[in-house]
């Protein structure tokens, strides 16, 4: 589903190279975890995948279902089924959450050539998904993410993911700022979306999240490259021994 081939990417503003020849393949139905120390390029990877202007790809390619997405803009990638759950969801004053959800769902449907949702259909979908994530409907009347707690913001991200039904989900440090209860709710939300035709990429610092969202594969990112891949036991090894050994071996 996702094939990243020898990807090189730089910060557009100052030309600093962050991603330096990254290779990664994630198959349909797979949950892949990407781990790595601070500054290894984890968040940059999520931005490059979603097509943020602040980064330029200088070499290599990103294939999604066999086709390059480098020429697609962020909105087109989203409509094609790529979803990024933000590490820091953005607060947008003046835009009610419900309105935002409805516009996003309908814009994606329009880009795919589908009919727009009617209001009753939309409300029903939101009610169901919000209930599963223990999100109060009153919270959704507030401006998007404004005044939401850390946990509420992350749950709102997963709500959007559940409603937009993407094919490839990228979760950028979704566990940061979550207490144990919230971590459980968010993980359950993500697990509910596991399916044979959907791939999920979980970016995280800690093994903690991977106890709840058990990955099929684990990849260690360091200095913009995947330096080691393995199964879920690799995450445990990292938790116990840190990154030092793996980095030394790779060098």
């Amino acid at each position: 589903m996702l094939e990243i081939k020898n990807l090189h990417a730089r910060v557009a503003e100052d030309g600093t190279e962050i991603i330096r020849g990254l290779n990664l393949t994630v198959n349909k139905g797979e949950v892949a975890a990407i781990m790595g120390p601070n500054g290894s390029g984890k968040s940059t990877l999520s931005y490059v995948l979603t097509g943020r202007d602040d980064y330029v790809v200088t070499e290599g390619d990103i294939l999604y279902n066999g086709e390059s997405i480098l020429e697609m803009d962020t909105a087109e990638r989203a409509a094609a089924g790529l979803f990024l759950a933000f590490q820091y969801p953005v607060e947008i004053p003046g835009v009610a959450t419900m309105q935002f959800l409805k516009v996003a769902m309908n814009e994606q449907r329009k880009l795919r050539g589908e009919d727009e949702l009617t209001t009753p259909e939309f409300i029903r979908l939101v009610r169901e998904a919000a209930g599963d994530l223990k999100i109060d409907m009153d919270m959704l009347k507030r401006p998007l993410n404004v005044g939401f707690s850390g946990g509420e913001k992350k749950r709102a991200e997963i709500l959007q993911m559940a409603l937009l039904q993407p094919k490839l989900c990228v979760l950028d440090e979704t566990d940061s700022g979550l207490d144990i209860d919230a971590l459980k709710i968010v993980s359950d939300g993500v697990n509910a979306l596991r399916s044979p035709d959907r791939a999920i990429v979980v970016i995280t610092h800690y093994q903690r999240l991977l106890q709840h969202i058990v990955p099929d594969s684990v990849h260690v990112l360091y200095r913009g490259q995947v330096i080691r891949s393995g199964d879920k036991d690799l995450a445990l090894e990292l938790e116990n021994n840190g990154y030092a050994n793996i980095i030394k071996n790779a060098a």
Binding site: T50, R52, D53, D73, T74, A75, A78, A79, F83, L84, F86, P89, V90, I92, F100, V103, A104, E107, Q108, L111, Q160, L164
Partner: peptide
């Protein structure tokens, strides 16, 4: 720009 990127990442055109 952060607002704009967030909205585009949800499929809303620029």
């Amino acid at each position: 720009e952060n607002h704009l990127f967030y909205m585009k990442a949800r499929g809303i055109r620029e």
